[in-house]
Computed example of a mutant assay.
Amino acid sequence: MYNKSLEIEETILKISSDVNPDFLEECVLKRRSEIKNYCKINNSFLKSHSPVKFEKGPEIVKVMSTASEIAEIGPMGAVAGTVSEFSLKQLIEKGSRYSIVNNGGDIAFINQNKDKNVICGIYAGNSDISGKIAFKFKPSNKSYGLCSSSGTVGYSFSYGRADLVSIIAGKASIADTLATSIANAVKGKKDDEAIEKGLEKAKRFKKHFIGGLIVVNDSIGTIGNLPEIISIEEGNLDEYLQDTIS
């Protein structure tokens, strides 16, 4: 296995792969350059909080535009997940059967190794579940995107107050925009009310994702088909999960 950290301006990749990922630096530089050059031509692509009509441009811009249209947010809301997605695609083309590309918490991965699982921790600010549980992804022939958004953690802009919205989809570009869009709807004075509003928004996009998790303080909501949720600390949280996850 190869493990590599790659930092290029705002892009901070952590990569684990059965293929040497050193070649990805050049690929990421190229993709970033394509996005920046397109933004110079179409400045609204950079600043808009709603979808922008796609005009002729590079593939990565087209993918970001498509994801933004699905989620009804600005195209730059897809940038981190799309860079992860494109990086994973490059690794797969090199023959990878097991790769995880983590771009600041927006993750694209594939695991065709029957002897390995992919464990992704759930970190949700000051919530009591933060850092205590994780998604356990079993081997699959498919690749996935797992992306998150928050109104209380990190630097990303959000209209809502979710500690965490995590979305699992077939593509990280779509998971990224949907996580942002759903997190924007997590509003309300009461935690359960805020989660319900987030779930209502998520239902509109169900055909585009596999499963989702919403956390506000110590309240949790789920939608779709999530992988097994496991404890990542001493003790057994099965009873706690049964009581709090619906």
Rank of each mutant, 00 (worst) to 15 (best):
E59M: 09
V61Q: 10
K62V: 00
V63I: 14
M64G: 02
S65M: 00
T66D: 15
A67Q: 05
E69P: 03
E69M: 07
A71V: 04
A71M: 08
E72K: 15
P75E: 07
P75T: 07
M76N: 08
G77F: 02
G77Q: 09
A78Y: 10
G81K: 12
G81I: 01
G81Y: 07
V83A: 12
S84R: 09
S84A: 15
E85C: 10
F86S: 03
F86Y: 13
L88T: 03
K89S: 14
Q90C: 14
L91N: 11
L91M: 10
I92C: 05
I92V: 12
K94C: 00
K94M: 02
G95T: 04
G95Y: 12
S96W: 04
S96V: 04
R97G: 13
Y98F: 12
I100Q: 12
V101I: 14
V101S: 07
G104P: 11
D106C: 05
I107H: 05
F109M: 02
I110M: 15
N111P: 08
N113L: 03
N113Q: 12
K114S: 15
D115W: 08
D115P: 06
K116C: 01
K116S: 05
N117V: 14
N117R: 13
N117H: 09
C120D: 11
C120T: 07
G121H: 03
I122T: 03
I122H: 01
Y123E: 14
Y123M: 14
Y123P: 12
G125W: 12
N126G: 07
N126E: 14
N126H: 11
S130E: 08
S130K: 03
G131Q: 03
G131D: 01
G131V: 11
I133V: 13
A134M: 09
A134R: 05
A134G: 08
F135K: 10
F135Q: 11
F135S: 07
F137N: 02
K138R: 14
P139Y: 10
P139E: 02
S140P: 15
N141H: 13
Y144I: 09
Y144C: 07
G145A: 06
L146N: 13
L146Y: 13
L146H: 12
S148L: 03
S149E: 00
S150L: 00
G151P: 08
Y155W: 01
R161A: 04
A162H: 10
A162S: 14
D163S: 11
L164C: 10
L164R: 10
V165Y: 00
S166K: 06
I168P: 05
G170Q: 11
K171Y: 15
I174A: 06
A175L: 09
L178G: 10
A179D: 04
T180Y: 07
